[in-house]
Amino acid sequence: MRRFRLAVMVSAAFVTIAAASGCSDGGDGGGSSYSTPPSTAPSNATAVPRAVVKTASAGSLDTILVDGQGRTLYLFEADKSTTSTCNGACATAWPPLLTSGTPSAGGSAKSGQAGTSKRSDGTTQVTYHGHPLYRYAGDSKPGDTNGQGLNQFGAEWYVLDAGGNKVDKS
């Protein structure tokens, strides 16, 4: 029964991602085009020696946190401490920002807010203002914010501002 539930959860995650991936206005009216994420953990889930948390402008969301490659970072509202609750299929859809060293800050991100936390698999995840940080597999390029406000894996996902607070402009 547990394997069946896990298979259903994994399938639901991929269906959700695939559905989001097919959304495109096809024109240049400000819409983004998406590609289907890989069926295994994205390569961006690999730990980097020194992860960077910096800021970038994201249109109507104003200035938000991004990683060293400019990819949007998110918080998961189910995380009530610096310890991640997103594992398995969740971590495939929402790859944690991992590091093997001390994270640094750039732009208007505050270096004193960047930290780390051990994940259940033993890897080290970057945190900011007490929130474990994630990317979204449905974001295909820097600047995409397709995960903003999604309710997946039991809670909502939001981009963060430079202070480490969720950005909710709904």
Rank of each mutant, 00 (worst) to 15 (best):
V66G: 00
D28P: 08
G68Q: 09
S104E: 08
T16F: 05
G122I: 06
K110G: 01
A13M: 14
C23N: 12
A19P: 07
S60A: 15
D28G: 09
G122S: 04
A47K: 01
T127A: 07
S60N: 11
L97C: 05
A58E: 15
S24R: 05
D28F: 13
D139F: 04
G29L: 10
T123Y: 02
K80M: 09
Q125N: 06
S111L: 03
G101R: 04
P49V: 02
I17L: 15
G106R: 07
A20H: 14
S43E: 13
T99Q: 04
A19G: 15
G26A: 08
A47T: 04
K80T: 02
S117V: 10
K54D: 09
G26S: 08
G88I: 00
G26D: 07
Y74G: 01
S84F: 00
S117L: 05
Y134F: 10
F14W: 15
T92R: 14
G70A: 03
G31A: 01
K118M: 13
N87E: 13
A41E: 14
I64F: 09
T82H: 08
S140E: 00
A18E: 11
G30M: 03
D62E: 09
T72F: 12
A109R: 02
R71L: 04
S100Y: 13
P96C: 10
S39R: 04
C86K: 01
A137T: 00
C90P: 12
L98N: 13
P95G: 10
S84K: 05
A78I: 11
Y34V: 01
A91G: 01
S140V: 04
L73Q: 03
P37I: 06
E77D: 08
S21M: 12
L97K: 00
S43G: 10
G30F: 01
A91M: 03
S100T: 15
S24C: 09
P38Q: 15
A56K: 06
G27I: 12
P95K: 04
P103W: 09
S84E: 00
A56D: 15
D139P: 14
A56E: 11
T63W: 00
G112W: 09
S24A: 10
T46C: 11
Q69L: 13
T102S: 15
R50Y: 10
T85A: 14
S39Q: 08
L73M: 06
Y74V: 03
T55S: 05
L133C: 03
A105W: 11
D79K: 09
S11W: 15
A51Q: 06
Y34M: 13
P42L: 07
V48I: 05
G122N: 08
S81V: 00
A19I: 12
G122K: 01
P42N: 14
T16P: 02
